[in-house]
Design a protein around this nucleic acid. Structure first.
Lengths: 339, 339
DNA sequence: TTACACAATGTAAACGCTTACACTTTTCTT
DNA sequence: AAGAAAAGTGTAAGCGTTTACATTGTGTAA
C-alpha cells in the first residue's frame, strides 16, 4: 500500500497526501482531515526509503562508543536515546572497541547509512594526535559531529564537556588543605578526559607549592581485580597512601577491594573517591563517594546542540559544565567548601 | 555522485555497476575490476535510501529493551550488536521503559523504519496475558521477531532461552540436600523468567517433600538499597534465613548489604546467590556467586537464528540452553554435584 | 467589472538504485 | 560447421516518495 492508494481512496492527488504527511505546505483543514482519516483506516505507513530518497534524511543519529556494555557508556547511550526520541530521531548504535584503527571504518559505515549526525560517546574517541582524529574531522565535513565529554577542534564538531580538571583539582585541593599529603591518582591510559583529570590533580599540588612524586600517579588499564592486585603489590613494597582519587568508579572499587583485603579501614585509614557516580559505586561497602559529572544533563545538552544545528541555529563549538560530588561512605572529609 | 557517474567513468552501463555492487549476477572479472577501481577513485558510496527502495531492506535490525543502561541489558545489546555487525547488519536501538503500554507504539516505530527483524532483549517483554503480547505477534506477521530470554508462542516468533527454572532448581536443591531449610527466594515482579525462576525454586522443595512457607518468597522491584532495607526490616521482625537465592545480581547485592549492615557473616552465617553473573557482582565484598546464564552465547544464538530465517532456513521456534554457575565468595557450599 | 493576490490542488519530474528482459558474443556439443 | 547453451552487457521500467511548477478557484482592491 502506498501513497497512490491513499490518494485514490481520499479522492485527492498524491501531492496533497504528501503535503498532509509532511505538514509543511498549505492544505485545507477539510482535506487534511479526510486524508488523515483514510490513512488511519487503511493503516498506511509511509515508506521510509522513498522518503529518505526524497528528503535525504531518515531522522536517524549514529552513536559511536567503544563498548556499550561499559556502565558509563551504557548510561550515556540510554539518556541520549531517550532524548533523541523526544525529537523523533532514532539511534543507530555502533560499538567500535578501543582500537582507534577500526574507528575510521565504523564512521564510514555510519556515513554510508546516511545518519543525520554522529555522537561520539566517551572521551576515548579523541586521540593525542591530529592524524588519528582525522576521520572525525572528515566526517564532520559532511554531517554534524558531537563529542560527549571529549574535546576536539574542527569545523562542525561540537563538544559537550564536563570540567574534569576542575573536579579533580577541587577534590585534591580539599585533601591538601586538610593536611593530607600522600594522595594517589589512579587513572586510565591517556584519553582526553584522562589527561584533564591528571592535570587537575597536579594543579592542586602545584598551587600549594607542593611536590608530587612520580609514584603518586598510576595509569592503569585493567579490571577491578587487576587494580586491586596492583595496589596490594605496591603496599607490600611499603608504599601506602591516605587518599586515592581516581578517574572512574572501577578504579575506585579496585582501591576499595585492595583496602579490604589488607584490612585497611575505609574511610578511617584510607579515603577513596571515584568518578562518574555510576551504579557500580552503590554495590560496594561502604558506598563510593564519586564525582558526578552529570551525565544526564550532558546528554540532553548534546541533543540540544544537535537540534539547534539541524535548524541552522548558532551553537558554541564547546560547552562546559561543572561536576558535582556524590559524597558517600568512602570519605569522611568535609567537601562543603570545594563542592 | 551516483551510479551514473560511475558507469560513465567506467564506460559501462548502470546495470553493470549495480551488479558489481551487489555481486550476485555475472560480471566478467575484467569489468568488475575496472568498475571497482573507478568507484574507489571517485570515492563512491551507494545511496542506502535508493538501495532500500529497490531491495526493500536496509540491513538493519531493531533491538528493543526496557532500559539500555541496565547492566544486564547493556551487555546483551553489546553482544548482539557485535554479532550482527559480523553479518553486516546495523542496530537500531529502542528503549521502551517498563510500561508495556508504550511498547506497541515503539514496535510500530521500528516497523515503520523498515527494520529487517526485531530482537526483544529481556524477558520483561513477555507478559502474562496474550492480549498484552498481541503487538508482538502482529509485528511477527511482517518480520521475524526473536525474544532473548523470554518465551512467547506465535508464528514467526523465535525464542532463545536459558533454562532459568532448572538453574534455580539446582541451586536450591543443592542447599536442601545439604540440610539447609531456611532459604529465601528474592525475585522481581513477574516476568516470564521471573516466573520460571520461582517455579524452579518451588520444585526443589516439592521434590524433597518439603513445605515452602509463604514468607520464603519475596517479589520486590526496587533498588539495591530498598532491597537491603526490606531485609533489615524483616530481620528485625525475627525472620532470618541461611540462604538467599535471587533473580538478579542487584537483588543479591541488596542481600549482601543487608548482611553487612547487621554484621551477619557471609558466607558463614548467610549464603547469597545472584543471577546473571554481571559485572556488579565483582564490585561487592566478597564477590558474588552468581548463576551464569551465558548471555554472550545466547546473543550469538539469537543472531544465528535470525540469519537462518533470513536465508529461509528452518529454525526451531525455541532453543534452550543450560545455565552455569560462577562460584565466588558469597557461598561456601560445594555445588559440584549440581553444576 | 477587471485585475490581481493568494490559497488549494494537481501534474510530472526528479531522487538513485535494482532487475526483468532483450540482445550480443563466446563457448560447448555433436 | 551449425546450432544450442551460457556468459556478459545494456535498456528501460519500476520502487514510493517530494516538490517545482502549473492550474484552478476565490476573495479583494481599483
Amino acid at each position: 500500500m502506498n501513497i497512490y492508494d491513499v490518494s485514490r481512496q481520499a479522492g485527492v492527488s498524491i501531492a496533497t497526501v504528501s503535503r498532509v504527511l509532511n505538514g509543511n505546505a498549505k492544505v485545507s483543514e477539510a482535506t487534511r482531515q479526510k486524508v488523515l482519516k483514510v490513512m488511519e483506516e487503511m493503516g498506511y505507513t509511509p515508506n521510509v526509503f522513498a522518503r529518505g530518497l526524497g528528503l535525504n534524511t531518515m531522522q536517524t543519529v549514529g552513536i559511536m562508543c567503544a563498548d556499550s556494555s561499559d556502565s558509563y557508556l551504557a548510561t550515556a547511550i540510554y539518556y541520549l536515546e531517550q532524548e533523541l526520541r523526544n525529537y523523533d530521531y532514532d539511534v543507530l548504535l555502533c560499538c567500535t572497541g578501543y582500537e582507534w584503527e577500526n574507528r575510521k571504518k565504523y564512521m564510514e559505515l555510519l556515513l554510508s547509512k546516511r545518519v543525520d549526525a554522529v555522537i561520539l560517546a566517551g572521551s576515548n574517541f579523541v586521540e593525542q594526535t591530529r592524524e588519528k582524529n582525522r576521520y572525525i574531522a572528515e566526517a564532520a565535513e559532511k554531517i554534524p559531529v558531537v563529542v560527549l565529554n571529549g574535546y576536539l577542534e574542527a569545523e562542525n564538531v561540537y563538544c559537550a564537556l564536563c570540567d574534569d580538571a576542575d573536579a579533580l583539582y577541587r577534590v585534591t585541593k580539599t585533601y591538601l588543605n586538610a593536611g593530607k599529603r600522600d594522595i594517589l591518582f589512579l587513572g586510565r591510559s591517556l584519553s582526553y578526559s584522562g589527561v584533564r583529570k591528571r592535570s587537575g590533580f597536579l594543579q592542586a599540588y602545584e598551587e600549594m607549592g607542593l611536590k608530587c612524586r612520580k609514584n603518586q600517579i598510576i595509569i592503569q588499564d585493567g579490571t577491578i581485580d587487576e587494580i586491586r592486585d596492583l595496589l596490594i603489590g605496591r603496599a607490600k613494597q611499603g608504599i601506602r597512601e591516605e587518599v586515592i582519587v581516581t578517574a572512574d568508579d572501577e578504579l575506585a572499587i579496585g582501591a576499595v577491594k585492595y583496602a579490604k583485603s589488607l584490612g585497611i579501614q575505609i574511610p578511617g585509614d584510607l579515603e577513596v573517591v571515584g568518578y562518574n557516580n555510576s551504579k557500580l559505586g552503590l554495590c560496594c561497602e561502604p558506598e563510593l563517594t564519586s564525582v558526578d559529572n552529570k551525565l544526564e544533563y550532558s546528554c540532553m545538552n548534546v541533543v540540544n546542540v544537535l537540534m539547534k544545528v539541524f535548524h541552522h541555529g548558532r551553537v558554541p563549538a564547546r560547552t562546559m559544565i561543572s561536576a558535582d560530588l556524590a559524597v558517600r561512605g568512602t570519605t569522611s572529609i568535609n567537601f562543603l567548601g570545594g563542592f
